[in-house]
Design a protein around this nucleic acid. Structure first.
Lengths: 338, 338
DNA sequence: ATGAAAGCGCTAACAA
DNA sequence: TTGTTAGCGCTTTCAT
């Protein structure tokens, strides 16, 4: 292993100068800086993270906490955050809360406690008060994506506004019998999305003078299958088939499209379908959706975190930062026929 | 921050004893062990990873290298590995090679060099000789999943055998005009899968006395869209439409199913479709497939790595370990009609 | 079985 | 601008 001493010797300076030259902290003459750089590359020297961490208290590593991994939204956010962090020279340690059992607890009680990270990005997490407390007790900056987490700066989309917009799109097209496929409550591992989205939906309806009908609400898993089964129920109703479905996520909406097809219905002629997410498959299915940008959200979270990690930072007041979204109209929605 | 000294004081022993008691290395009396455990929990003490790493040379952290993140196979493998590692008390640092640019190089030149990991799990990686050399130079154990990587223990599925089995399934049903949707060569970021799968396909055909027809081979991206477009081409052919399609991955196969439907063809009556993977959506689409178990593969890789990390380990000879797979027959394949 | 003490490789005062 | 040096918190000989 090549150590800082080897570099110092080869460059003809002290280890302190090597440290300063390589880290950029502290004054170093141009000449020394160059000698050090040369020696370091010649020897293939890379700072030992544990030694550096121990001495400086900084780890150059951040923790990414996610409730699930295997869903498009989360991986996209993780990927965005990871690549941004890498550009800043940071490693990423991944904590996945799914899997049940004591694993979730040990993340908070053990893994996050070992001084391995400088900060945390929590993606779409719904945390218990104990967990929030344990996070704060770490004394490290935390940035939430999709939160909100109490006392934590969080990037949030306004879920009520989004689902209101989705519903208004259908209303504006002339639909009146609009159903909603929302999340099941057990899915609230990630915050209150299901509830908020339902609220926006009902708000828009009432504003248009339409009273939400209970038989037009179905809850389902946030998956293609979940949406499929829900839509089968909704669309199979012989009494009052809805003319449009607003699904709380694109994966569900895709399931709705497939269900409609299986019933011999043509989208959008017989039923309009809109989702939320901007899922990678939404374009393929011609799905009208409200795009969110999880990848960009991950990157944005990194920006904020890096700012809080900067030495001379001004601790910003925690508060929510609204995120952008866009209605993307494709071929799954149209005016109702007949 | 509560340090080992605090625990030692409270337990009335030396820091050395605390270290031994907590790590399980070295002899400690039952009495002392208990006192230490009590003190540690009372104080909420957790070993500082950097201090421990620096002193011992062990980090309790492993690196996971993946070529992409956003595909089912990879996330599943990552998830399996991550959860298994957590059970062993290991953190996971994620290195994603996608994203192009200098990022890939810096993973090998910088990130992996900082002594932050005890070992590496490389998932489905096709590495350049330089990269392999740099991996070996780390002197840390490496386990590959899906490799093979030279000089590295690797879990591999026999891709030739798998695609042969898939093709034989179709042959046994009586199909003769069997097309293959394989991977594009540019997709070879992850090893030689496309090639191997094609080889197995052609082997099975020839064995059955059928000469593979070039117009029955199409390459595509490993996505639903890729499979969709490929199948449109294949099935739109007015001269000699294949009666069956073997897709190199389930995502492609699902695309094929959707393409067939859009053409008004009924699966499997008009065309049989088989994939490979055991993708989470395969059941929903009734897709006959050859299941691999990426999650289990990730876990298995961890077992091997943990074994190599054990102090008294016998360095095993590098070699490939074959993985299991299963033909799962569903409703997308049947005898050809007419 | 236990404790004293010497580092692990680096950073950050402090002095020069 | 540079070097000297005292730790950072823990592990691990080596005595006892």
């Amino acid at each position: 292993m090549v150590s800082i001493e080897d570099v110092a010797q080869r460059a003809g300076v002290s280890t302190a100068t090597v440290s300063r030259a390589l880290s950029g902290n502290g004054p170093v003459s141009a000449a020394a800086r160059e000698k050090v750089a040369d020696a370091a590359t010649a020897l293939g020297y890379v700072v030992s993270s544990s030694a550096s961490s121990l001495a400086s208290g900084r780890t150059k590593n951040v923790g990414l906490i996610v409730p699930y991994l295997a869903r498009w939204f989360f991986i996209s956010a993780v990927e965005g955050a990871q690549q941004a962090l890498m550009r800043h020279g940071y490693d990423v340690t991944l904590y996945n809360l799914s899997g049940g059992g004591g694993e979730r607890d040990s993340v908070f009680d053990v893994f996050l406690q070992r001084q391995r990270i400088d900060g945390i990005i929590a993606i779409s997490l719904e945390l218990s008060p104990v967990e929030v407390a344990s996070l704060h007790a770490l004394g490290k900056p935390v940035v939430g994506v999709g939160g909100p987490i109490e006392g934590v700066r969080t990037l949030t989309v306004d879920d009520v506004a989004i689902s209101r917009l989705a519903t208004e799109h259908l209303l504006a097209l002339g639909h009146e019998r609009i159903a909603h496929v929302g999340g099941s409550e057990t899915y609230d591992l990630d915050f209150h999305i299901p509830t908020n989205r339902r609220v926006g939906y009902e708000l828009a309806l009432r504003e248009a003078g339409i009273e939400p009908r209970p038989e037009y609400f179905t809850s389902a898993d946030f998956t293609i299958e979940g949406g499929y089964h829900a839509a089968k129920q909704l669309l199979g109703n012989p009494r009052s088939r809805p003319t449009a479905i607003f699904a709380a996520a694109d994966e569900m909406a895709i399931g709705c499209i497939l269900a409609a097809r299986d019933l011999g219905l043509v989208v959008p002629r017989d039923v309009s379908i809109i989702g939320i997410d901007g899922h990678e498959l939404s374009e393929f299915f011609g799905l009208t959706t409200i795009a969110q940008y999880p990848r960009a959200q991950g990157e944005h979270a990194v920006d904020i975190l890096m700012n809080e990690l900067r030495p001379g930072k001004h601790a910003e007041v925690p508060g929510n930062i609204p995120l952008g979204y866009d209605l993307i109209v494709r071929s799954s929605t149209s005016r109702p026929t007949g």
